[in-house]
Design a binder for these strands. Structure first.
Lengths: 100, 100
DNA sequence: ACTACATTTCGGTAATTATCGAAATGTTTT
DNA sequence: AAAACATTTCGATAATTACCGAAATGTAGT
């Protein structure tokens, strides 16, 4: 668990927003046409549109977030879906409680 | 409580170190000649020396940390002593638990 | 294996943060 | 109120991060 890296990721408002939106995808994104559910989260395109940033930027944000474990990626057909990794998030906070 | 600002401050290793050292000053700093205790924390000079950064840099770090409330400053004679503000730190973590 | 479309990677520039030394300012004690 | 010393503020430059558009790559269905 690289606390410093996670903190860096959490020091950007857009990335905080993304993490927040992913808590309740149904409140922030249209249901995906093909899947009709959010079991594996939300696809890159929807997140980028919502955030108002380019595909390349959102992709880079998401992969950095995935790298430290905050979110997980699942591929369904053409799309990659991202969702929160609640366990890692919980661990992170737990770690802060003990060490900050 | 400005979570984003606090996260930014916590995304620097040196500032994390400072916060850590201030948990047990007696383990990391010499007892101050004039005071002989750490009730109000540690002076800027000692922290800067320990961190290996210039006075201006450490001063800027400390004031940014104070600005968001993570530490408090107390002046004793010629020196300004800084110590952790445990309440704010606890609140921050509590806030993360509920909102991250 | 080609098309159509989604996603990622690759340079590139603008904005922010890191960090310094020097100058300015504050405090205590003469 | 001047000396001696501590601390903060003020530019300046190096390093990092924020983003973008274009090119490259991956995938599903012809």
């Amino acid at each position: 668990m690289d606390i410093l890296e996670i903190n860096k990721i959490l020091s950007n408002q857009l990335r905080l927003n993304i993490l927040d939106w992913l808590k309740t995808p149904e409140d922030h994104f249209p249901a995906h046409k093909e899947l009709g559910h959010f079991n594996d989260g939300v696809c890159v395109q929807y997140i980028g549109t919502k955030a108002g940033i380019s595909q390349s930027t959102v992709s880079s944000y998401l992969s950095s977030m995935q790298k430290v474990g905050l979110i997980t990626a699942t591929r369904h057909g053409k799309w990659t879906y991202y969702k929160r990794n609640e366990e890692v998030i919980r661990n992170y906070i737990e770690h802060l409680s003990e060490n900050l």
